[in-house]
């Protein structure tokens, strides 16, 4: 699967680009699911692949759709490579790797929006400008959505509208996105006409 093309949207909707090699004293690659293919594409473009891999730490987890390319990731031959069963399981290690990095480290994020958003949030918290973080979307387009009413986050939202997994309200999914929360915004769809909920459409796969 190649990189994802999203329809034009509002200015908070994250945009992604192809990962490009950049000079750096260390390289941290965080990927899930089909993101492994973006990493392979990146590594193919590196002039001195062995030098980069000797300074590279890869954190990987299978995608929300079950895509698992860990064997390929391991075969890249990075100095450090790690596979977590899920994104939440990856977060503690990610936090330590990010917090102990030095300036000159390049961050490459690849895969689904849930993984990219949560990694970006962790890196931004160090004071590194978010614009310096490279992100390429691959794989599932399911969304992490925060209910604006109860503040609970529902992972892997596939339909619009959907039922908040915390408070049960019927929410429509806006393209409005918060990097601080690493989630899109969900707003009650039947507030003005309680009970009038349109049929759920599978918008994110």
């Amino acid at each position: 699967m190649s990189k994802t093309n999203f329809p034009p949207s509002i200015k908070t909707r994250p945009v992604y680009a192809e990962l490009e090699p950049r000079p750096g004293t260390a390289h941290v690659i965080i990927a899930d699911g089909e993101g492994a293919e973006a990493v392979a594409h990146l590594l193919a473009k590196v002039p001195d692949r062995a030098l980069m891999l000797a300074r590279t730490h890869i954190l990987y987890t299978p995608g929300p759709n079950g895509t698992d390319q860990w064997a390929a990731v391991l075969a890249f031959g990075a100095a450090q490579a790690y596979c977590a069963p899920t994104i939440p399981a990856m977060l503690p290690r990610m936090a330590k790797v990010v917090a102990e990095a030095h300036m000159g480290t390049q961050f490459y994020l690849a895969g689904t929006e849930g993984l990219i958003g949560q990694a970006e949030r962790e890196i931004m918290m160090t004071g590194l400008p978010f614009a310096a973080i490279q992100k390429e979307h691959r794989g599932s387009t399911v969304r992490r959505v925060q209910c604006v009413h109860c503040k609970g986050i529902t992972e892997n939202v596939a339909t619009d509208p959907f039922k908040c997994s915390h408070c049960g309200l019927n929410l429509f999914v806006r393209d409005h996105y918060s990097r601080r929360i690493a989630a899109f915004q969900g707003v009650n769809i039947d507030a003005e006409d309680p009970g009038l909920v349109p049929a759920a459409v599978e918008k994110f796969k």
């Binding site: 004293t25 990010v98 917090a99 102990e100 990095a101 030095h102 300036m103 000159g104 480290t105 890196i123 160090t126 004071g127 590194l128």
Partner: peptide, 8 residues
């Protein structure tokens, strides 16, 4: 430049 913590 190399020894600065991330976020410098």
């Amino acid at each position: 430049l190399t020894r600065q913590p991330i976020g410098t």
